[in-house]
């Protein structure tokens, strides 16, 4: 695990010392801020609804969740493979999983920083005399971080598969959008109620998993487990793909 920690610190430094991360944060925060102020006005100043809107209750949130992770993870393997840095990394005395884990945590941390900006909005509202309910805010940020981790792991797996960062970003975005769209397959196929596929698709509904607990200020082990397990699965896939680079 010390290997993962080393990779994590290296990646995090790399991210925060690259203009790309700051540009992404700048755009995302401006985007988020715009819709937050709009929601405050739209909900007639209702602070609780506005905070829910900011963290998981709006299309803008899901758009950021789909787009940002691929942009952060696209370079993590494909760029390193192109420049030859990956060869050094793979021969370093760290396991493949530690490499994936370190990179995943770094990308997730950057997104967690983005979502944590909600606390600043909360503080501003508190300063204006209408403090939000902090517990749903905390659970919302935690949930948003878990969702980001899931999509970052997808991005990492695809980045490990591709040799071009742009291609990796493109496919990862498609994959993320596909994951979010899984529940609509049910409607497309007009599955009968209670059919195993429909039940399975229901369980794979990322938006519901997120909104049913984190957004409303509840912590549900079912939903936490869902995000942890599937992040783990895609990290495992990324590890196997990375390992395959040795012999393919």
């Amino acid at each position: 695990m010390s290997g993962a920690w080393t990779i994590y610190r290296r990646e995090l430094a790399g991210l925060f010392l690259s203009p790309l991360a700051w540009v992404l944060l700048c755009i995302a925060l401006a985007f988020n801020g715009f819709f937050f102020v709009l929601s405050v006005k739209g909900f007639g100043g209702d602070v609780l609804q506005s905070m829910s809107f900011l963290l998981g209750g709006s299309y803008t949130f899901w758009m950021l969740v789909v787009l940002l992770p691929p942009l952060l993870t696209m370079r993590m393997f494909s760029e390193e493979a192109r420049t030859g840095v990956l060869e050094f990394l793979l021969t370093a005395p760290v396991s493949d999983f530690a490499v994936v884990l370190g990179k995943l945590l770094a990308a997730t941390t950057l997104l967690a920083v983005l979502w944590s900006s909600a606390f600043l909005y909360g503080l501003a509202l508190a300063a204006l005399g209408t403090p939000p309910d902090w517990a749903p805010l905390v659970s919302g940020v935690c949930g948003a971080t878990l969702v980001s981790a899931l999509f970052c792991s997808v991005g990492l797996a695809i980045s490990a598969l591709c040799n071009t960062p742009l291609l990796a970003a493109f496919f990862a975005t498609i994959a993320n959008a596909a994951i979010l769209s899984l529940p609509f397959v049910d409607a497309l196929l007009a599955l009968p109620p209670g059919s195993p596929l429909r039940v399975a698709l229901g369980h794979a509904n990322v938006i519901t998993q997120f909104q049913a607990s984190f957004v409303v200020g509840a912590l549900d082990t079912k939903h936490v487990l869902f995000f942890v397990v599937w992040t783990g699965f895609f990290s495992f896939v990324a590890t196997r793909v990375l390992e395959a680079r040795r012999w393919w």
Binding site: P19, A21, W22, L25, A30, V37, V40, S117, L128
Partner: peptide, 18 residues
């Protein structure tokens, strides 16, 4: 205040750091 924080301070800080 909300406008300044949302459009000015936070994104501006990131832009400057970038």
């Amino acid at each position: 205040l909300l406008n300044v924080l949302s459009f000015g301070v936070l994104p501006g800080l990131c832009a400057v750091l970038g």
